[in-house]
């Protein structure tokens, strides 16, 4: 029972990170029908930016008392900005000019951008994992039979607040509505005066910002950053997005948490070397039996 609850908490923590990354895949897919394979590396980049800020501040002796809170906030905001700008920059430089090309062209380009980012990050940070500064105090709390770390609570809370903010942004704000309109029917959106290119750029900006949050909480949670982190995490998050129904925002969140649970429990029950098998078996099963995902639309929308 004790171990079960611990794995549950682990799964939620992992799931929160996957959900944040999965949202980026699903937002971009929703608007461009493009799997942005570089998205995982945007997450890695966010992690390293947060790490760099924290290391710098710690070296300057600024991470004490109120400075600790400010430092954490600065690292988080820097990761958000850096990942958002990187993702929007990728769209501007690599994908925009391929907007009218056959669909395979941007897809291959995305894979190319991913390799490029991985190699650039390796040049910048080396090929070994870099320890992430252990800045958030992590006393263990006992809640009934459940033992959780403060860090876990912070990670999950930050992810959930971000997702709630995203939900309201997409549902209520003018730009959020424009994003949904462009996702549904680009021509019709342009006829009501929506600038389609700008809306797509904003979507990449937001998807990147979410990857930045994930980069920060992922660094805190895993205790390190590594140039290839985004490859594995990106594939799992992509699986989560497909499981929930690619293009569906609530689906990406649900899929993220389910994949996090699956990874955590499969590691516990059948061993860590099998958790990839479990996760990617889910991808195959979903693609075969329910390609539209758990929450995806099954009815054709276009006549």
């Amino acid at each position: 029972m004790h171990e079960f609850l611990a794995q549950l908490a682990n799964g939620v923590e992992l799931g929160a990170i996957y959900a944040l990354i999965a949202l980026g895949y699903t937002l971009v897919y929703g608007i461009l029908e493009l799997i942005n394979f570089a998205h995982g590396d945007v997450y890695t980049f966010g992690s390293f930016v947060a790490l760099g800020i924290l290391v710098g501040l710690r070296a300057a002796g600024a991470l004490h008392g109120a400075g600790l809170i400010l430092g954490i906030a600065a690292a988080l905001i820097a990761a958000i900005l850096a990942s958002a700008l990187l993702n929007a920059g990728i769209e501007r430089l690599a994908y925009r000019r391929l907007r009218k090309a056959p669909r395979l062209a941007p897809l291959i380009t995305a894979i190319g951008v991913s390799f490029m980012l991985e190699n650039l990050i390796e040049l910048w940070q080396g090929s070994a994992p870099v320890p992430f500064p252990n800045v958030i105090p992590n006393p263990q709390l006992q809640i009934g039979a459940l033992e959780v770390g403060v860090q876990q609570i912070v990670v999950v809370a930050l992810a959930i607040v971000t997702m709630i903010a995203l939900h309201f942004f997409v549902q209520r704000s003018k730009l959020g509505k424009a994003m949904r309109a462009v996702a549904q029917d680009r021509d019709a959106a342009s006829l009501v005066g929506i600038n389609v290119d700008r809306t797509i750029a904003m979507t990449f900006l937001i998807a990147g910002a979410l990857a930045g949050v994930a980069g920060f909480v992922g660094g805190v949670s895993f205790g390190s950053a590594w140039f290839l982190n985004g490859f594995g995490a990106g594939l799992r998050a992509f699986t989560a997005a497909v499981l929930g129904g690619i293009g569906n925002i609530a689906g990406a969140m649900l899929g993220g948490f389910l994949i996090g649970m699956l990874e955590s429990f499969s590691t516990w029950l059948i061993g860590g070397q099998w958790s990839n098998v479990a996760v990617f078996s889910v991808l195959i099963l979903v693609l075969v039996f329910r390609p539209s995902g758990l929450l995806g639309e099954t009815l054709p929308e276009k006549v």
Binding site: A178, A181, Q184, D185, A188, S190, L191, G193, N195, E301
Partner: peptide, 29 residues
């Protein structure tokens, strides 16, 4: 979108409303 903002409205063939959004959201757009 620039042409629309100049004052040309276009009700396209097949209506092309945003089917997954509410009537109100369509009008807001």
């Amino acid at each position: 979108d620039a042409i629309a903002r100049l004052g040309i409205g276009h009700v396209p063939e097949g209506r092309r409303i945003f089917t997954r959004m509410t009537v109100r959201e369509n009008l807001e757009l």
